[in-house]
Amino acid sequence: MRRLLYLLPVLVLGVLALFFMKGLEMDPHEIPSVLLNTPAPAINLAALPGHDHGLTTDDLKGRVSVVDIFGSWCVSCAQEHPTLLAIKETGIVPIYGIDWRDDPVKGAEWLKKNGDPYERVGLDPAPGHASVDFGVTGAPESFIVDKGGIIRWKHIGPITPEVWETELLPKIRELQK
């Protein structure tokens, strides 16, 4: 019994070490969304110049979709852009864009120059009410919304081909069943 008592500090140290090791692997910027499994927020966003439609909550109902928060000012958004265009090519899922804190003209030009992977794009000027309603922490950030308009997944950071294959696509396939 007394011997066990001497082991106590070692045990405490061991538990602390486990916590710290886990902490090393965790990304403090990946904040779990409280909005998972809740209805997508009510939005009604204006169209970009030259585009026919803005984006409303009703657009997100009826089929599984991806909502992508981006901006022409955002460097990592340019990085994920080719992947979004490739996803559009496959026709597996519609991607809706929220052009966050952007100048409408710059946003429209950016899409013209780089290609437009979005089914519809809504403009969300500062202070970005719609994006804040989605709990945005930075661009790009993407959500999978199910047929009923419920948020089922959130991805922080650019969508790479690997993220698409391993994270988003399986989730989308499952929701499409």
Partner: peptide, 13 residues
């Protein structure tokens, strides 16, 4: 940060 500014504005709203 821009997002902090936005949240300040929204809090004031």
């Amino acid at each position: 940060a821009d997002l902090a500014r936005d949240l300040r504005v929204i809090v004031r709203e």
